[in-house]
Design a protein around this nucleic acid. Structure first.
Lengths: 106, 106
DNA sequence: AATATATGCAACTATTTGGTTTCATAAAAT
DNA sequence: ATTTTATGAAACCAAATAGTTGCATATATT
């Protein structure tokens, strides 16, 4: 099964978990309290996030605190960057495009 | 079934299709020639991309030219933006964090 | 008119996914 | 020592996914 950051962020619940633990490390139980789903389903999402290298764990007694490895999201940023360049250049050149269109049509 | 831009970009083949048609509009057949998969599977991916509002179609005779609606990718950019701010501020404040840590530990 | 080409759609299949239920283990509280 | 709490793992299930195969339709080409 594929395990990359794009697959990780595809699920809305996982994006919500990411948002939660970006602020502060949390235990699976604490995370589950923020959703109406079982603790086990959160654990499975955390396992997927962990396999995608998006979270780190810190054991404290019987609790495990999960937090976001925010650097990993830079992979998404790097991917979107190429397209950002396209839409930014399109915006810059909008006037040119419009005047060229006028010429072509005429 | 969920149809949003995050689900659309989760599949590596769809990301490859996006990269292709970002440059220029292409027909399903022309796209399929770039992969070792059937024309029909490309059509299914294009359907998903279309349902996610990531592509636009232009019919020319019996050909249909698909091209990227790049604005839609700005939704991904907006999502990643909040985390970019976090890692950028972390970078900016790295010295502060380190000196604070020293104080806390001591 | 007959044939070839470009495409979408529907049915079918194997695999993956997200979830629940149940169990095992280890640490804390009593 | 016994019970409670926090967690992961395994078995199972329904739904979704990616792909294939076979068709239907419409536009070119001959």
């Amino acid at each position: 099964m594929r395990r990359d950051v794009f697959q990780a962020i595809a699920d809305p619940k996982r994006r919500a978990i990411i948002a939660l633990i970006a602020v502060q490390a949390m235990t699976p139980n604490a995370i589950a309290e923020n959703f109406n789903t079982s603790r086990q389903s959160i654990s499975k999402h955390l396992k997927i996030l962990s396999e995608c290298d998006l979270v780190k764990q810190e054991q404290q007694g019987r609790e495990i605190h999960y937090s976001l490895k925010i650097e990993k999201l830079q992979e998404v940023d790097a991917w979107i960057e190429q397209y950002r360049q396209i839409w930014e250049s399109r915006f810059d050149q909008l006037d040119n495009v419009l005047s060229n269109l006028k010429k072509d049509k005429k």
